[in-house]
Amino acid sequence: MTMISLDAVSKWYGTFKVLDACTTAIERGEVVVICGPSGSGKSTLIKCINALEPFQQGTIRVDGVSVGDPNTDLARLRARVGMVFQHFELFPHLSVLDNLNLAQVRVLGRSRDAASERSLALLQRVGLRDQATKFPAQLSGGQQQRVAIARALSMDPIAMLFDEPTSALDPEMIVEVLDVMSTLAQEGMTMLCVTHEMGFARRVANRVIFMDHGAIVEDVTKDAFFDDPTARSVRAQTFLSKILQH
């Protein structure tokens, strides 16, 4: 069953074409990694999926709901799709627990107690239950990002979008975040991850999408992407050899 589908999606900033007829589909439970050079439109693409950015052409469907349809309740749609940002974006004025509770209470209408119970269970899952009363600024970057993942999960999302979740982190903290993401993938979460962590892609992804100049240049299985050099475009090969050097 298709969870997220994009059909010839194009987007312009003024006259600049950021997305160029992007087409792909993500099945339920599938893990897809998006990579590509800076400015190629990766962030823009996933922001279109939960309607944080509008697009001008094409169709995006999430669990059958058309994102571009003016009649779609976008807040409701966003509530069902979790998103994790490069810079965590925890709410600094709220405790860790309240970061997780806020949308559960305000959007899902859960009671504060029910929300807290769910939040604490999720914090337990990311190994941070004992940090619930702290404020984001008191946590390390890796801890903050795990809280951000727990916050997204607190809405019981049908899919998760990640935008370079580890690229603002020190190396020793990257692992703890990738571990949480791997577990999530094993549990069957549908995931779309913009990341340059090729080790993670190799271990966890089903498919890899390579973007360049706003277009999806490659959309192949993980094995084809990593093990079959002939299957890759020159552009993707150059890109891969660059990031694998590090």
Partner: peptide
């Protein structure tokens, strides 16, 4: 980013 994060959670 704060605005994006809040909207992404489904807040109006």
């Amino acid at each position: 980013g704060q605005q994006s994060a809040a909207r992404a959670l489904g807040l109006d």
